[in-house]
Amino acid sequence: MNAPARDMRGSAAGPVLSARDLHTWFELRQWGFLRVGSVRAVDGVNFDLQAGESVAFVGESGCGKSSLARTLLGLHQPTRGEVVFEGRPLGMLNSAERKAYLARVGFVQQDPYGALPPFMDVRRILHEPLIVHGVRNRAEREQRAQEALEEVRLSPAADFLSKFPHMLSGGQQQRVVIARALILRPKLIIADEPVSMLDASVRVEILQLLRSIQREHGLTLAFITHDLSTVRHFAERIFVMYAGRIVEQAEVNELLNHPQHPYTQALLAAISDPDPDNARHQREVPPGEPPSLLKPPDGCRFHPRCNRMIAGTCDRQDPPDFEPRTGHMTACWLYR
């Protein structure tokens, strides 16, 4: 399946990044050699990210969204399928091209303190990617480090360059992480729950910062989050993931206002909006837990928890993608 070609910026160059039937399985071994099964963290994912758009991957913990991010970054080798960057599958790149690819993709992690080497000062942290990518001129590195700090609104940059991570607040640390992701001037930024470890007070700031940087540079931004409530403001498209698969995707308002998949509906219902209507609603919280990725259920992965399960179909056959509304795809037998 391909995402509908809804290119907001009119880029004719095609998608920046695509996943084609992407599988990332982790083999479990006993005594070091006996295969006893695989954890199917990413299990058949397809999507296209267009230049300059901001998308969100949403799902519960353990649905494979972080593994997906790491597979996109080349930190995990896909078991099957491929990641295509600007028309070239990653698997076909030689090591120099692969390194060049890593310079085009920035990575923002969840835990800002853990993401910064504690024994390096900010200057060194920002110089490192440049050194790795062969910027030998120290003055140039310094210049770019300062620009990157200004970009993430850490100014005056000179004050921060000589600081160590433990001297910075969580928000400042995350800004340094973002500066590091930006310093190689990437086309795509993958942010894995960039604000979940931060104080509520700085979350919005960081998200707005990411959003404004993305708009300014025309970057593609892929958010990974479990927080549907903030997604609305910072993403244009949403992919809902469940048990290693994308179960629903649509433009943000379309998806939030007209959720199709029972899982998405349940997720949305679980958001605690300060809405007096809530008192009158019976919440549909799905019972049970996300399925084991070691032995996912047959058929639709969600069917054991689904209150609209069609016996004989949902528990037998994998649902393909249906398009119940224009530009709104969902993998659910209800829309057959």
């Binding site: 970054l73 930190l75 692969r98 890593l102 853990g114 993401a115 080497p117 990518h133 590091r180 190689l184």
Partner: peptide, 26 residues
């Protein structure tokens, strides 16, 4: 397993660099 090592891999640091510059200094 620390995230900063993952970050280093994500910006393309090689094995030798990770061992000598990221793990040992720690």
């Amino acid at each position: 397993e620390s995230p900063y090592i993952e970050a280093a891999r994500a910006y393309g640091a090689g094995n030798a660099r990770i061992i000598l510059r990221y793990m040992i200094p720690r």
